[in-house]
Design a protein around this nucleic acid. Structure first.
Lengths: 162, 162
DNA sequence: CTGAGTTTGTTGCATTCGCAACAATGCCTC
DNA sequence: GAGGCATTGTTGCGAATGCAACAAACTCAG
């Protein structure tokens, strides 16, 4: 019989003060700057950032892409993507085309209007991002990115956005 | 007439590579760890983090508090809070009590079950936070918090959570 | 006191979301 | 190639959300 075993009844381990501070700051700041950029897009009567991300991911793949291959890097659930694509298709920004090797699914591709829209969104997105991040410099940004990637267990460099 | 004036037609300024990396990492990592903790609470059949935050903010205030005074620090819109309180009241976790000085509003106070619930949630929340943040140490966490707070324009130290 | 303007909080409505159930196809073993 | 399991994607439905309109109470100048 061991002493010190981690058991149910012992008081829950409390995250250290620095961990708590990082946790809180992460929640608040990420929300704040995401909202800043979201607002900029809305004010310009442009679609949500998510739409941008989908369009950009498709464009970056440079070939028709399966929904399942989008869902992973975009961090969204398949049923969300399904309806997201519904709406984007309705707006004429992407199209579902038949998938030869797997008749369950299909391939996604931006329409010409889709490419156009992505570009147009970037002209608002980019300055808004710049504005939201203006309080830190490049050196700090790099440091921040590295810390975050370590925190998230990402050890490869994330490719830049555009 | 000035040269160099920032005008509409010039190509949109593109955020530097480090800024873009920080932006992306911030979005992904914050989402990922938030979902981790949210999942832990859901698996324990406990309410959402937002409920915790409300209960904790009320408890920290140590006196009945106006909705408007909660909305600011919680970063949520009044109409969201309104319905949030509806649901929490329905579950018997908070109560609206009459406000003597302003008959428009009311004061919010946790019920005994509310205090109880906050405590119970913390026993899941704390270890989940610890787990989600385990990849960085205290020194890094502090550095991260400082960078984030600078980014968010917050120059006072954020009080720890519990 | 009165009436204009503000603050505080709620609500109707259309949209969106999350979940679990589902259809359809693919894959793999016997 | 038949039957069982896994993968891929969609959908019905109840709950939640965002927005704009709203009611009620407060403030304050005249």
């Amino acid at each position: 019989m061991r002493m010190q075993q981690t058991q149910l009844k012992e008081p829950a381990r409390i995250p250290s003060d620095p961990i708590q501070r990082a946790w809180i700051a992460l929640g608040r700041v990420s929300q704040a700057i995401r909202e800043d950029v979201a607002l900029a897009l809305k004010n310009a009567r442009l679609p949500d950032i998510t739409w941008y991300t989908v369009l950009w991911e498709l464009e970056r793949a440079a070939k028709p892409t399966r929904p399942k291959d989008l869902a992973i890097p975009l961090f969204i659930m398949p049923y969300q993507l399904s309806r997201l694509v519904d709406r984007m298709e309705e707006e004429g920004l992407v199209q579902r085309i038949a998938c030869p090797e797997d008749k369950r699914g299909h391939l996604l591709e931006p329409t010409p209007e889709g490419y156009e829209m992505r570009k147009r969104m970037w002209t608002v997105y980019a300055p808004a991002m710049e504005e939201a991040m203006k309080r830190i410099g490049d050196a700090e940004a790099l440091q921040l990115a590295q810390l975050l990637n370590r925190l998230g267990g990402i050890d490869y460099p994330v490719p830049p956005k555009a």
